[in-house]
Design a protein around this nucleic acid. Structure first.
Lengths: 106, 106
DNA sequence: ATAATATTCAACCATTTGGTTGAGCATTAT
DNA sequence: ATAATGCTCAACCAAATGGTTGAATATTAT
């Protein structure tokens, strides 16, 4: 479980990988499409996706010759559970949080 | 701000550093005391503390010949704010959270 | 059958990381 | 004044990281 946290936080510690996650938030994508906005090689992106995958931050599913990438909430959840122990809420903007919940619960 | 996230997540991506944070959750400590339960050198611990400090996860204050280390909530907060965008709340117990906020806002 | 597309593999490279040791500085105790 | 304590610095090392390129594999299109 501790090794998981290593993999998760290390994976999150790279701007390109965080950007990939942000992109996948909008939609599932094939590897080539993930790579498109970046200036680094496709092989490099492929490696980043492997790292995200092993951290439990994304899932990859091969369909035909494409490999679809989608967010996997598990990794982020494990990380945030660990972080909860550090007073995540004690200094949070409670008004903003309340507003969020009201709008979110409709 | 994005560089901050690099520093924070990279800092969290090491088990020894997370253990240091866990220790500081219980009490502020001097560098030597932080190092005591670990098997690595004092210099190594000193480096880890520097990394945590630059990530905004701890603060260090020199008093006499000791340097006191305490948690700094800022780094963790920045990280959790970034993570909020990834559905951190979508599986959370919203009722419990709402109750928490009501009681907390008095 | 051949060519194009989608992705990974393998070998390589420079830089960073996490560790070591020994010396160096302040500060406090004797 | 001298010694001990608390911590950092500097130089070094092995391993990991993030990138490259070129070849390999598998699938789909012509």
């Amino acid at each position: 479980m501790d090794k998981n946290l290593d993999l998760i936080f290390q994976a999150l510690g790279d701007g390109n990988r965080r950007e990939i996650l942000r992109m996948l938030l909008e939609d599932d994508m094939a590897v080539t499409d993930v790579a498109e906005p970046f200036e680094i090689s496709l092989a490099a992106i492929s490696k980043h996706l492997m790292i995200l995958s092993r951290a439990g931050l994304i899932k990859q599913e091969r369909r035909g010759r494409m490999k679809w990438c989608k967010l996997d909430p598990l990794g982020m959840k494990i990380a945030s559970i660990w972080m909860e122990g550090f007073g995540q809420f004690e200094n949070v903007d409670l008004e903003a949080l309340e507003l969020f919940i009201k709008t979110e619960l409709t």
